[in-house]
Computed example of a mutant assay.
Amino acid sequence: MNFQATAKHETTVLRVLKFLQKSPAKPEQGAKQSMMILNSSNGALSVSEECLVRLAREGYLLVDKKQQLTLSQQGVDYIKLQKNKNIADICLHNTGKAKVIKVNLAESPLAVLYRMKTSSGQSFLTESEFNAGERLRSDFTRGSMMPRITANWEANVNSHSRGALHGSVELSDGALSARLRVEKALDAVGPELSGALVDICCFLKTVSQVEAERLWPARSAKMMIKTGLSMLHRHYHPVAKGRTSSGILHWGAHDYRPAL
């Protein structure tokens, strides 16, 4: 299941569970054979029969004596989990002093851009571009760069001014490797776009924030980010370079001479 399909399924599941949390509902056949209508005192909700069967099989739903669907304790716990699991505290030091902000990882700016549609109905970001951004964020997090990262990408990755909580703390091999991967990736993108990619993919700033902070024209950041992600993808998946010479090759002995 790809990113869009997974996100759509999770959204549907949460919508059904929240609907049943308000009151029990009686399922009825919908206009389409594959669809069901949940009727309750709080209204009606259309959902696929496959979704309901799956939720019941996995223990999120129960059937009471009136043949109504009710929410199980497992379903209640799932709703609580979804409210909390994607909330994270991020400590920023870009302005010289620490600032802790709360972000919803499920609504990362990169995911928002991926869900956007062009006029032709295609995703604004390709799956390759989205995955490149997620890969950068993964290395950024593994390298423990989030708490102390600054906007100065000219500093060496081994310097104490960047990343480590204290100068005496030594990085693990895995964290150091992740930092080196981030360094190479941002060098490949270049200084013009690397900072914006870090803001969007790693610091989870919104597109409008990036535009305001960098004094970019309104609605320009999307294309800049897309361009940067495309360059990032090419860095992660370089195209093999073959022989470009168009000359004719001929194998022969050292003293070989062509016949005239």
Rank of each mutant, 00 (worst) to 15 (best):
T206P: 11
A31T: 11
P238F: 10
K184Q: 15
G252W: 06
Y78E: 06
S230G: 15
V112L: 15
R148F: 06
R142P: 02
L71I: 00
K22L: 01
P27R: 05
N86K: 13
K205Y: 15
R135C: 09
Q122I: 03
C51A: 04
N39S: 14
S168P: 13
V169K: 01
R179C: 09
N156E: 14
K226V: 05
V182P: 03
C91Y: 11
S72P: 04
L249S: 11
Q82P: 03
F130D: 00
S46W: 06
Q21H: 03
L69A: 06
A7P: 00
E129V: 05
L197I: 08
S220E: 09
L14Y: 07
R115W: 02
G59D: 05
A185D: 06
A212C: 12
P147S: 14
E58V: 02
V16D: 04
G96M: 05
G190K: 14
K22C: 04
K65Y: 04
L136T: 02
I200E: 10
K241M: 06
K66S: 09
Y236K: 05
T95L: 14
P27Y: 08
L52W: 03
E49V: 02
S108L: 11
Y60G: 00
S208P: 09
P238Y: 11
T141L: 12
I37R: 07
L20Q: 01
E134T: 12
P27L: 08
W153D: 08
S245K: 03
P109I: 06
V157Q: 12
A88D: 13
S119G: 09
P147L: 13
D77I: 01
T244L: 11
L136V: 00
S245N: 14
Q21Y: 03
K117N: 08
A212H: 05
E213T: 15
F3G: 07
L125N: 08
S208E: 15
L136I: 02
H237I: 06
P27C: 06
G133W: 06
A151L: 07
S159G: 08
S138V: 10
G195L: 12
R57G: 03
G247E: 12
Q33K: 15
K222I: 00
K22M: 03
